[in-house]
Design a binder for these strands. Structure first.
Length: 257
DNA sequence: ATGACTGGTGTGACCAGA
């Protein structure tokens, strides 16, 4: 069972890259973020022709998340992060498939910090933690994955001192992530590669990819039952080097059957 | 310290991303 997460940064502009990567990587389940497309502009036909069913939550211009499943369709459990009726941003989607609860998230960027966007990020994080704790307490087999917009530790940033005041790396943000982890989640990629430099995002600016000036901000958090099934994982870094590519690379894990 | 790049929107002296 291969599960992937990929912030595509515009699903329609990225469609050739996405289809090429799907054919190459052959993941069973894919969480996508930053569709940047309204609900009716999701390229369902192309996705279906590639062999996938899709459940998605679009939004004009920004955000947007989707969960693709190979072959059979998943069952939608939750659309939008619970806890704030007034939050209309499309950043969270939950689907049950292959006996797993797949939670696809796009946590707010939060810059500039401090400010209202950073406050929104921290509140969103609180809501996520509350919801995630509920899932754990129910003992569900959960894969909580997506673009968290957090570098958890110094190891996850090419130059930590340059990022200490950034919303992705401020103490409050890292503390929120640490609090979430403290509930009992397993950071799959860090578990597989302890002590290694491993990035999932490279800025379009300043030849960041060429210099390997990256960040690790796309994560897989596994509930205890799922963590015991973790076999392998990685970042498809080469995809970041393709033409017309996203600033993120796909990240994936494989679970024992 | 600043700005560089990209997608979407719509043709902006735009916004937002990270």
């Amino acid at each position: 069972m291969k599960i992937a997460t990929y912030n595509v940064n515009g699903i329609n502009g990225r469609l050739p890259v996405l289809l090429r990567w799907l054919a190459e990587a052959e993941p069973d389940i894919v969480c996508l973020q930053e569709l940047k497309a309204p609900q009716e502009k999701f390229p369902l036909e192309a996705i279906q022709n590639a062999g996938y069913q899709a459940i998605w939550h679009g939004q004009k211009s920004w955000n947007g998340v989707a969960i693709l499943t190979r072959g059979t369709a998943g069952r939608e459990i939750c659309r939008g992060l619970p806890g704030d009726e007034e939050d209309i941003q499309s950043r969270y989607l939950e689907v049950f498939t292959a006996d797993l609860l797949i939670c696809c998230l796009y946590l707010p960027n939060g810059n500039p910090a401090p400010g209202p966007k950073f406050e929104y990020k921290l509140k969103w994080f609180e809501r996520l933690s509350r919801h995630a704790e509920g899932l754990l307490k129910k003992g569900l087999p959960v894969v909580l994955t997506g673009d968290f917009n957090v570098m958890p530790t110094d190891m996850d940033v090419y130059k930590p001192e340059r990022w200490v005041d950034d919303a992705l790396f401020r103490p409050e943000t890292r503390a929120a992530f640490a609090g979430l982890m403290g509930q009992g989640w397993t950071d799959a990629i860090r578990t597989l590669y302890p002590g290694q430099k491993i990035y999932t995002f490279w800025d379009y600016f300043r030849n960041a990819y060429g210099r390997d000036a990256g960040l690790r901000i796309d994560h897989f958090l596994l509930s205890p039952a799922v963590a015991g099934r973790l076999r392998s994982g990685g970042v498809d870094k080469h995809v970041r080097g393709w033409e017309k590519t996203s600033d993120h690379a796909p990240v994936w894990i494989e679970l024992e059957p």
